[in-house]
């Protein structure tokens, strides 16, 4: 039942997004604009600043993720459909997992556009260790989205939600961003430091377990007004 509800909520979110394409277009546009601004600032005569690519990738993911989280929950607020979800006899943690999976998939699509662009503009060797890079991105995205989904749902009826979401989200997800940046930088070296990247991946997996567990535990009481 738990997985069925999570699947239903995720499928509904993806159907809504496929119809409107509002969040995916705005998020990709924002992420690409972010990378281009950094490219203008940090690439001189075709030569990018050393080691900048990893940081720019994760900053863009964090900024784009915040935008996606805000817009996704704004949609639920608009017709108060989040209240309808909360009123259903379904497990609330399952609803949380469904929302989380929807956000993660959306951000992975954004990253599929973002990573090649960063590779191109910053001469980052994105194809040298593709599996490890994908692993870092997936784990980092889950950690960031786990906290983001909880806070975005919690703030959905707050008047200052657009300001409050990044203020609450960034300090708590700093470990995820740091692990993502350090792991990606290790992979982008001339001789990729795979062991180091795997150590950061293990740390990201640990953060994911902690953040998802805490979110599942706190979602129900936090959503009861």
């Amino acid at each position: 039942m738990f997985l069925r509800v999570a699947w239903l909520v995720m499928r509904k979110d993806l159907t809504v997004e496929v119809r409107s394409r509002e969040v995916i277009y705005t998020t990709i546009f924002f992420a690409v604009a972010c990378v281009l601004v950094f490219a203008f600032a940090l690439v001189r005569e075709g030569r990018p600043l050393e080691d900048a690519a990893a940081g720019i990738m994760w900053i863009s993911v964090a900024f784009a993720g915040t935008l996606a989280l805000g817009r996704t929950f704004e949609r639920e607020r608009h017709s108060e459909t989040l209240r309808a979800l909360m009123l259903a006899p379904a497990s609330r943690p399952a609803i949380y997992v469904g929302k989380l999976l929807g956000i993660v998939l959306l951000l992975l699509v954004v990253e599929a556009v973002l990573v090649p662009l960063i590779g191109l503009l910053f001469h980052a060797p994105i194809a040298s260790r593709p599996l490890e890079l994908a692993g870092l991105l997936v784990l980092g995205t889950i950690g960031f989205s786990a906290v983001g989904t909880l806070f975005a749902a919690m703030l959905v009826r707050a008047r200052s939600r657009d300001v409050m979401l990044p203020v609450l989200l960034y300090p708590i997800t700093i470990p995820v961003i740091i692990a993502g940046v350090r792991g990606t930088a290790a992979l982008f070296e001339v001789e990729p430091a795979v062991d180091l990247a795997q150590m950061w991946m293990a740390l990201l997996a640990f953060f994911d377990i902690v953040f998802v567990t805490l979110s599942l535990w706190t979602f129900e009481p936090l959503m009861t007004e």
Partner: peptide, 15 residues
């Protein structure tokens, strides 16, 4: 056992 018809209707306009 509860049903709620709110002023906001609780429908997804895109579906």
């Amino acid at each position: 056992c509860l049903g709620l018809l709110s002023h906001d209707l609780h429908l997804y306009p895109e579906l």
